[in-house]
Protein backbone atom coordinates (compact mmCIF):
# COMPACT_ATOMS: atom_id res chain seq x y z
CA UNK A 1 0.00 0.00 0.00
CA UNK A 2 1.11 3.57 -0.60
CA UNK A 3 2.94 4.94 2.44
CA UNK A 4 2.92 8.72 2.59
CA UNK A 5 4.72 8.94 5.96
CA UNK A 6 1.98 11.27 7.20
CA UNK A 7 2.55 13.84 4.45
CA UNK A 8 -0.84 13.29 2.82
CA UNK A 9 -2.39 16.22 4.66
CA UNK A 10 0.36 18.53 3.48
CA UNK A 11 -0.59 17.76 -0.10
CA UNK A 12 -4.25 18.30 0.73
CA UNK A 13 -3.40 21.78 2.09
CA UNK A 14 -1.51 22.49 -1.10
CA UNK A 15 -4.43 21.31 -3.21
CA UNK A 16 -6.74 23.77 -1.46
CA UNK A 17 -4.38 26.64 -2.20
CA UNK A 18 -3.97 25.51 -5.82
CA UNK A 19 -7.74 25.56 -6.30
CA UNK A 20 -8.02 28.94 -4.54
CA UNK A 21 -5.35 30.49 -6.79
CA UNK A 22 -6.91 28.86 -9.83
CA UNK A 23 -10.41 30.17 -9.11
CA UNK A 24 -9.21 33.70 -8.27
CA UNK A 25 -7.05 33.76 -11.42
CA UNK A 26 -10.00 32.53 -13.50
CA UNK A 27 -12.16 35.39 -12.20
CA UNK A 28 -9.39 37.86 -13.13
CA UNK A 29 -9.03 36.20 -16.54
CA UNK A 30 -12.76 36.41 -17.35
CA UNK A 31 -12.94 40.05 -16.26
CA UNK A 32 -9.88 40.91 -18.35
CA UNK A 33 -11.38 38.86 -21.17
CA UNK A 34 -14.58 40.91 -21.09
CA UNK A 35 -12.55 44.11 -21.10
CA UNK A 36 -10.25 42.81 -23.85
CA UNK A 37 -13.09 41.59 -26.06
CA UNK A 38 -14.76 44.98 -25.70
CA UNK A 39 -11.44 46.54 -26.71
CA UNK A 40 -11.25 44.35 -29.80
CA UNK A 41 -14.85 44.91 -30.92
CA UNK A 42 -15.26 48.61 -30.20
CA UNK A 43 -14.61 51.39 -32.70
CA UNK A 44 -12.09 53.32 -30.58
CA UNK A 45 -8.71 52.91 -32.22
CA UNK A 46 -6.78 53.15 -28.95
CA UNK A 47 -8.86 50.39 -27.38
CA UNK A 48 -8.27 48.19 -30.45
CA UNK A 49 -4.56 48.87 -30.24
CA UNK A 50 -4.38 48.15 -26.51
CA UNK A 51 -6.38 44.92 -26.78
CA UNK A 52 -4.42 43.66 -29.78
CA UNK A 53 -1.08 44.46 -28.15
CA UNK A 54 -2.23 42.68 -24.99
CA UNK A 55 -3.18 39.42 -26.72
CA UNK A 56 -0.19 39.50 -29.09
CA UNK A 57 2.40 40.05 -26.38
CA UNK A 58 0.96 37.72 -23.76
CA UNK A 59 0.55 34.82 -26.17
CA UNK A 60 4.10 35.25 -27.44
CA UNK A 61 5.93 35.12 -24.10
CA UNK A 62 6.25 32.05 -21.83
CA UNK A 63 4.21 32.10 -18.61
CA UNK A 64 7.33 31.49 -16.55
CA UNK A 65 9.02 34.65 -17.86
CA UNK A 66 5.89 36.74 -17.22
CA UNK A 67 5.55 35.29 -13.73
CA UNK A 68 9.18 36.01 -12.86
CA UNK A 69 8.87 39.47 -14.40
CA UNK A 70 5.86 40.37 -12.26
CA UNK A 71 7.12 38.79 -9.06
CA UNK A 72 10.77 39.85 -9.15
CA UNK A 73 10.70 42.64 -11.71
CA UNK A 74 7.89 44.85 -10.38
CA UNK A 75 9.32 45.43 -6.85
CA UNK A 76 12.75 46.21 -8.31
CA UNK A 77 11.22 48.61 -10.81
CA UNK A 78 9.20 50.40 -8.13
CA UNK A 79 12.25 50.57 -5.86
CA UNK A 80 14.51 51.98 -8.53
CA UNK A 81 11.89 54.60 -9.42
CA UNK A 82 11.52 55.46 -5.72
CA UNK A 83 15.29 55.68 -5.31
CA UNK A 84 15.60 58.05 -8.25
CA UNK A 85 12.98 60.25 -6.58
CA UNK A 86 14.89 60.19 -3.30
CA UNK A 87 12.88 57.64 -1.31
CA UNK A 88 14.20 54.41 0.13
CA UNK A 89 11.48 51.81 0.26
CA UNK A 90 11.27 48.04 0.10
CA UNK A 91 8.46 46.43 -1.82
CA UNK A 92 7.53 42.79 -1.47
CA UNK A 93 4.70 41.28 -3.39
CA UNK A 94 2.62 38.63 -1.73
CA UNK A 95 3.17 35.45 -3.83
CA UNK A 96 -0.56 34.62 -3.75
CA UNK A 97 -1.46 38.00 -5.21
CA UNK A 98 1.43 37.96 -7.68
CA UNK A 99 0.52 34.47 -8.82
CA UNK A 100 -3.19 35.19 -9.12
CA UNK A 101 -2.64 38.41 -11.03
CA UNK A 102 -0.01 36.99 -13.38
CA UNK A 103 -1.91 33.79 -14.19
CA UNK A 104 -5.13 35.82 -14.53
CA UNK A 105 -3.36 38.34 -16.75
CA UNK A 106 -1.95 35.63 -19.03
CA UNK A 107 -5.17 33.65 -19.41
CA UNK A 108 -7.13 36.89 -19.76
CA UNK A 109 -5.55 37.09 -23.21
CA UNK A 110 -6.89 33.66 -24.12
CA UNK A 111 -10.29 34.50 -22.58
CA UNK A 112 -10.31 37.69 -24.68
CA UNK A 113 -10.16 35.66 -27.89
CA UNK A 114 -12.83 33.24 -26.66
CA UNK A 115 -15.21 36.03 -25.63
CA UNK A 116 -14.56 38.04 -28.79
CA UNK A 117 -15.67 35.04 -30.82
CA UNK A 118 -18.69 34.55 -28.57
CA UNK A 119 -19.87 38.16 -28.87
CA UNK A 120 -19.36 38.03 -32.61
CA UNK A 121 -21.54 34.96 -32.97
CA UNK A 122 -24.58 36.71 -31.48
CA UNK A 123 -26.81 37.80 -34.38
CA UNK A 124 -26.80 41.57 -34.82
CA UNK A 125 -30.60 41.58 -34.80
CA UNK A 126 -30.61 40.75 -31.09
CA UNK A 127 -29.01 44.03 -30.05
CA UNK A 128 -31.07 45.93 -32.61
CA UNK A 129 -34.30 44.41 -31.27
CA UNK A 130 -33.35 45.41 -27.73
CA UNK A 131 -32.63 48.89 -28.96
CA UNK A 132 -35.96 49.01 -30.80
CA UNK A 133 -37.93 48.33 -27.64
CA UNK A 134 -36.06 51.13 -25.92
CA UNK A 135 -33.56 49.18 -23.80
CA UNK A 136 -30.55 51.10 -22.53
CA UNK A 137 -27.11 49.99 -23.74
CA UNK A 138 -26.07 48.69 -20.33
CA UNK A 139 -29.36 46.83 -19.89
CA UNK A 140 -28.95 45.39 -23.40
CA UNK A 141 -25.52 44.11 -22.51
CA UNK A 142 -26.69 42.66 -19.22
CA UNK A 143 -29.93 41.07 -20.42
CA UNK A 144 -29.33 40.21 -24.06
CA UNK A 145 -25.66 40.05 -24.98
CA UNK A 146 -23.91 38.71 -21.89
CA UNK A 147 -26.16 35.66 -21.27
CA UNK A 148 -25.92 34.57 -24.90
CA UNK A 149 -22.19 35.24 -25.15
CA UNK A 150 -21.60 33.15 -22.02
CA UNK A 151 -23.38 30.21 -23.63
CA UNK A 152 -21.24 30.49 -26.76
CA UNK A 153 -18.09 31.02 -24.70
CA UNK A 154 -18.61 28.10 -22.33
CA UNK A 155 -16.58 25.45 -24.25
CA UNK A 156 -13.71 27.89 -24.85
CA UNK A 157 -13.68 29.16 -21.27
CA UNK A 158 -13.68 25.56 -20.07
CA UNK A 159 -10.51 24.96 -22.05
CA UNK A 160 -8.95 28.12 -20.63
CA UNK A 161 -9.72 26.87 -17.13
CA UNK A 162 -8.09 23.49 -17.75
CA UNK A 163 -4.89 25.07 -19.07
CA UNK A 164 -4.97 27.67 -16.30
CA UNK A 165 -5.22 25.19 -13.42
CA UNK A 166 -2.21 23.31 -14.77
CA UNK A 167 -0.30 26.58 -15.13
CA UNK A 168 -0.76 27.28 -11.40
CA UNK A 169 1.95 24.65 -10.81
CA UNK A 170 4.42 27.33 -11.94
CA UNK A 171 3.59 29.50 -8.93
CA UNK A 172 5.58 27.06 -6.77
CA UNK A 173 8.64 28.70 -8.31
CA UNK A 174 7.79 31.96 -6.52
CA UNK A 175 7.50 30.12 -3.20
CA UNK A 176 3.73 29.98 -2.83
CA UNK A 177 2.83 26.90 -0.79
CA UNK A 178 0.52 25.33 -3.35
CA UNK A 179 0.37 21.68 -4.36
CA UNK A 180 3.67 21.58 -6.26
CA UNK A 181 5.67 23.21 -3.50
CA UNK A 182 4.11 21.07 -0.78
CA UNK A 183 5.00 18.07 -2.93
CA UNK A 184 8.60 19.23 -3.10
CA UNK A 185 8.70 19.66 0.68
CA UNK A 186 7.24 16.19 1.24
CA UNK A 187 9.55 14.54 -1.27
CA UNK A 188 12.64 16.21 0.20
CA UNK A 189 11.66 15.10 3.69
CA UNK A 190 10.91 11.50 2.78
CA UNK A 191 13.47 11.02 -0.02
CA UNK A 192 10.68 9.55 -2.12
CA UNK A 193 10.33 12.09 -4.92
CA UNK A 194 8.78 9.65 -7.38
CA UNK A 195 5.96 8.67 -5.04
CA UNK A 196 5.04 12.24 -4.25
CA UNK A 197 5.36 13.74 -7.72
CA UNK A 198 3.35 10.83 -9.12
CA UNK A 199 0.68 11.42 -6.50
CA UNK A 200 0.67 15.15 -7.27
CA UNK A 201 0.29 14.41 -10.97
CA UNK A 202 -2.71 12.17 -10.20
CA UNK A 203 -4.25 14.97 -8.13
CA UNK A 204 -3.89 17.35 -11.11
CA UNK A 205 -5.34 14.64 -13.35
CA UNK A 206 -8.26 14.36 -10.93
CA UNK A 207 -8.87 18.11 -11.16
CA UNK A 208 -8.82 17.86 -14.96
CA UNK A 209 -11.28 14.95 -15.01
CA UNK A 210 -13.67 16.63 -12.57
CA UNK A 211 -13.45 19.85 -14.64
CA UNK A 212 -14.23 17.92 -17.81
CA UNK A 213 -17.35 16.43 -16.26
CA UNK A 214 -18.43 19.76 -14.80
CA UNK A 215 -17.95 21.38 -18.20
CA UNK A 216 -20.14 18.76 -19.89
CA UNK A 217 -22.90 19.38 -17.36
CA UNK A 218 -22.59 23.15 -17.60
CA UNK A 219 -22.85 23.00 -21.38
CA UNK A 220 -25.91 20.76 -21.19
CA UNK A 221 -27.47 23.19 -18.71
CA UNK A 222 -26.64 26.25 -20.82
CA UNK A 223 -28.00 24.67 -24.00
CA UNK A 224 -31.20 23.24 -22.58
CA UNK A 225 -33.21 26.18 -23.93
CA UNK A 226 -31.90 25.61 -27.45
CA UNK A 227 -34.03 23.34 -29.57
CA UNK A 228 -32.16 20.95 -31.74
Amino acid sequence: MLDLHGYGWLLFDGLQLTIAVGLCAMVVAVLLGLLGSWGKLTDHWWANLAANTYTTVVRGVPELILLLLVYFGTPTLIQSIATSMGYDIRVDINPFIAGTITIGFIYGAFATEVLRGAFQSIPKGQAEAARAIGMHRIKTFQRILLPQAMRFALPGLGNVWMVLIKATALISIIQLDELMRKTKIASNATHEPFTFYLLASFIYLGITLVSMMAQKRAEAWANKGVSR
Partner: peptide
Protein backbone atom coordinates in the same frame (compact mmCIF):
# COMPACT_ATOMS: atom_id res chain seq x y z
CA UNK B 1 -2.61 10.90 -23.92
CA UNK B 2 -4.97 11.53 -21.00
CA UNK B 3 -2.12 11.52 -18.48
CA UNK B 4 0.24 13.79 -20.39
CA UNK B 5 -2.49 16.23 -21.38
CA UNK B 6 -4.15 16.21 -17.99
CA UNK B 7 -1.14 16.97 -15.78
CA UNK B 8 1.14 20.03 -15.71
CA UNK B 9 4.38 19.80 -17.68
CA UNK B 10 6.30 20.98 -14.62
CA UNK B 11 5.14 17.91 -12.67
CA UNK B 12 6.17 15.68 -15.58
CA UNK B 13 9.64 17.23 -15.67
CA UNK B 14 10.10 16.91 -11.90
CA UNK B 15 8.70 13.38 -11.90
CA UNK B 16 11.31 12.28 -14.42
CA UNK B 17 14.27 14.32 -13.16
CA UNK B 18 13.84 14.16 -9.37
CA UNK B 19 11.61 11.09 -9.31
CA UNK B 20 14.16 8.88 -11.05
CA UNK B 21 16.46 9.42 -8.06
CA UNK B 22 14.21 7.16 -6.02
CA UNK B 23 15.15 4.25 -8.31
Amino acid sequence: VLYFRGTPLLVQIFLIYYGSGQF
